[in-house]
Design a protein around this nucleic acid. Structure first.
Length: 327
DNA sequence: CGTTTTTGACCAGCGC
DNA sequence: GCGCTGGTCAAAAACG
């Protein structure tokens, strides 16, 4: 069956090949091992995951250890994709809010698929291009400054610098099968904008983490091809734990250096006990996952440490998925 | 009354 | 240069 289920603004997903393509870049589709149609365990085993990676640095075992250990409290469907080429992570995790069946997004099979794309070198893709990210700041600077030649020059330098910095911002996209637009992920977000998206009847919403000094942003948009799917894109990483008291989130003063999610009892407790608002009484099941790796991946330039750090980043961004405490 | 959401305006980047 | 698009700002409204 080759029913194509996703092709939204450069997102591409085919159920037959577990193909999840972003920004029209090529992906290879790696074989995966079909799992049971129902998966009640708290994680996927490496055999179920069916990882088959060309890169020795990201072994199936390693990928599994690094994060593809999915909590049933996270979603019914989890589809992560890491775009190393663009410093872009892409994930989709879907859950079915109205049924307990394990509906694949557009797939028609009783299995849920997941994949990770790892590709090298930052930038150039559309998804990684955010011209407007610093537009506001630039505007402010312009308003404050006197517009002199030196100012203009220095602004150019600042702009270039910011642009370069921007390119390195890692981004993670999730595709989530849900009726809820804004999924609860434990962090506190403030909406700062909404825009109509080209070729889509659904608007894109922009959120910022409300914690002070945390500049994590996320965009939420609904797939125009499959309105039941919500695409959530995270940018940057939280430098603080999940706020224990949501009302005090913006006053959290925890620094990145203080923050050790794996050793934080509070954090762990949250992962285990915090109910997801979108989950209702759902049991989240992930039958299996596969990992896709960009064939152009250059190991020399982006070795194990980067992959590891990216997975670590992924884990930090989605602790509820990655840090599930073993019984 | 503090916080969040809404929404129109603005800006930058890009393609033509 | 112009128009389109994505992203952000910020005032007003809504919310709790």
């Amino acid at each position: 069956m080759s029913h194509e289920i996703k092709d939204l603004n450069n997102y591409h997903y085919t159920s037959s090949y577990n193909h999840y393509n972003i920004n029209n870049q090529n992906m290879i589709n790696l074989p995966y091992v079909s799992g049971p149609s129902t998966y009640n365990a708290n994680m996927i085993s490496s055999s179920q995951a069916g990882f088959d990676l060309p890169s020795k640095n990201l072994s199936p075992q390693r990928a599994f250890e690094l994060g593809f250990e999915l909590s049933p409290s996270s979603s019914d469907f989890f589809n992560p994709s890491i775009d190393q080429e663009n410093g872009l992570y892409n994930n989709a995790y879907n859950y079915n809010s109205s049924h307990k069946s394990h509906e694949v997004v557009g797939g028609g099979s009783a299995t849920i698929k997941s994949e990770v794309r790892v590709s090298p070198s930052p930038s150039s893709s559309e998804a990684d291009h955010h011209p407007g990210d610093d537009s506001g700041k630039i505007r402010k600077e312009r308003e404050v400054g006197d517009g002199g030649e030196d100012d203009q020059r220095s602004q150019k330098v600042v702009k270039t610098k910011k642009k370069e910095e921007k390119k390195k911002e890692p981004r993670v996209s999730f595709m989530t099968k849900t009726e809820v637009d804004h999924l609860e992920d434990g962090y506190r977000w403030r909406k700062y904008g909404q825009k109509a998206v080209k070729n889509s009847p659904y608007p894109r919403s922009y959120y910022r983490c409300t914690t002070q000094k945390c500049n994590v942003k996320k965009r939420v948009e609904r797939s125009y091809q499959d309105p039941t799917v919500v695409i959530t894109t995270y940018e940057s990483q939280h430098n603080h734990p999940i706020p224990t008291n949501r009302r005090t989130a913006m006053f959290s003063g925890t620094t990145a250096s203080d923050y050790n999610p794996s050793s934080s009892p509070i954090f762990t407790d949250l992962i285990i006990n915090t109910p997801r608002s979108f989950s209702n009484d759902e049991l989240f099941r992930v039958p299996y996952a596969s990992v896709n790796v960009n064939p152009n991946y250059h190991q020399q330039q982006h070795g194990f440490h980067q992959q590891e750090s990216e997975f670590e980043l992924l884990k930090e961004m989605f602790p509820s998925v990655f840090f599930k405490q073993e019984p």
